[in-house]
Design a protein around this nucleic acid. Structure first.
Lengths: 255, 255
DNA sequence: CGGCAAGTTGAGCCAGGTCAACTCCGGTGG
DNA sequence: CCACCGGAGTTGACCTGGCTCAACTTGCCG
């Protein structure tokens, strides 16, 4: 029952798609890392147990979506971050404080990397180090940007930002122009700090104003990138186009 | 006019305080890094020019507070993250997108590290790599936690969380028990995504309920850590103590 | 084709935003 | 030493965006 690395790695996107972590490794490194690591598939709603994270604090995502969820005492739930294909989550030295839980939002393939093998590669393989370092920086600045979105933006603006975030993160060569929303409305609401009802209403507003079209519930087409961009950037004029029209009608009815 | 590393480094906290970056370097590394790097002092409100960040994208903070600020088109401003002593900000490959600006919130000493020297150290010095890696992870998870705070917490809960964040980040051996708020009310409001007026009101509520005391405007004493913790964790019972009393009065006046 | 989860729509309400007035405090100059 | 100033913080009164709750529609799966 000895597996060669190839058997589990060759069909894994972390190895087979350029730019991902395992793509940077030498055969020797891959062989070693592979034999010391454990793959798993999580179904939607499943979480990675806290115990498992202590011995396996480094998790690479091969496909799907993982979320970092925080739960308040009274049941309010927040999705603080999304992790997708290619992201490497390094929780070493973090588990002791009351961090959130890693929960799958759809079926998700992960690979728990051996911390020792991982650390060794990080010291000896400049290319791999560069990639992981860049990924972590990306995670950090993504979280910082997300904080900025949550802090002062209105619901519509947050949703517009989110659509751009999806577009930016999805693999380029997908269906031309369309943006894929990879999570349910509820998850989206928890990520953006709003209610599912509000998400629904805001989508409808964007649709009514011909800024986006729905191809399916999770697939949208941006009809006017500039307008959506201006909304995301908090430009009042963009949000108030509709408002201005209403004012116009009021003036008419008064005259 | 040749400076020995000692002249500018020996009085710098990045070198002199244990655990910071330069403390991990060999004399040779320090000498090299020092001669290739540039120190500077920013006054409150001053920013690091975008141009400078392209050639000097790695900034270490020796003292003071830097903020990452995002500006919306209509003037709304957000502080997305704080950076303090010991933090290393690595903006390589980030400046192209519309990230925020680095603005000092008080007089701040920084050191712009030579990217080349920095990269070299990261590849050869395991201890330094470990420290920087840990610091970046800390930044990432701090931002993720902050997102969780912003998303679903109420004003009072956010403020309580912030007090704990301050307590956690300040150097341990400071004035016993007191928590130092290192920024102005306005900055705090921008960080927590609320109005300065609301910050003020919430501080007053915490004070009225004997949960905190003000030693000075920027120095508070936590009188009940458990209660403050419960508020920060979003436990309704903690927030509603006051509410319950009011209900009681209502019942009385009705009877 | 029933049953359940996900999403949408509507009506009412409240936490916190907004605006304006006021206090407090450290610095400055006569 | 006091008068003055400007920036920071506080307080009060009012108003609204988005939360809440409840009913409804839609779509998926066995």
């Amino acid at each position: 029952m000895t597996f060669t690395p190839a058997s589990k790695c060759q069909k894994c996107s972390l190895y087979s798609e350029a730019g991902n972590f395992c793509d940077h490794l030498s055969n020797q490194e891959l062989q070693n890392l592979s034999s010391e690591s454990r793959t798993a598939t999580l179904k939607r709603g499943e979480t990675i147990a806290g115990e498992a994270l202590k011995t396996w604090p480094v998790v690479a995502i091969a496909s799907g979506v993982l979320s970092m969820q925080h739960l308040l005492e009274d049941g309010r739930k927040t999705i603080a971050a999304f992790f997708m294909q290619g992201d490497i989550i390094d929780l070493r030295g973090i588990s002791n404080r009351n961090r959130g839980h890693l929960i799958a939002l759809k079926n998700t393939d992960i690979c728990r990397l051996s911390p020792i093998a991982f650390e060794g590669i990080m010291l000896s393989n400049a290319g791999a180090q560069h990639m992981v370092w860049g990924n972590l920086r990306e995670q950090a600045y993504r979280a910082i940007d997300h904080s900025a979105d949550l802090a002062k933006k209105k619901a519509l603006e947050k949703l517009a930002s989110f659509i751009f975030e999806c577009r930016h993160r999805q693999i380029e060569f997908e269906i031309g122009g369309d943006v894929h929303i990879p999570v349910r409305r509820v998850d989206l609401a928890e990520y953006l700090g709003m209610q599912p009802e509000t998400v629904s209403r805001c989508f409808r507003i964007l649709e009514e104003r011909d800024i986006i079209d729905f191809v399916s519930i999770s697939q949208i087409k941006i009809r006017s990138v500039p307008v959506l961009r201006r909304i995301a950037n908090g430009e009042n004029t963009a949000v108030n186009v509709h408002q201005a029209e209403e004012d116009h009608f009021k003036v008419l009815s008064f005259g």
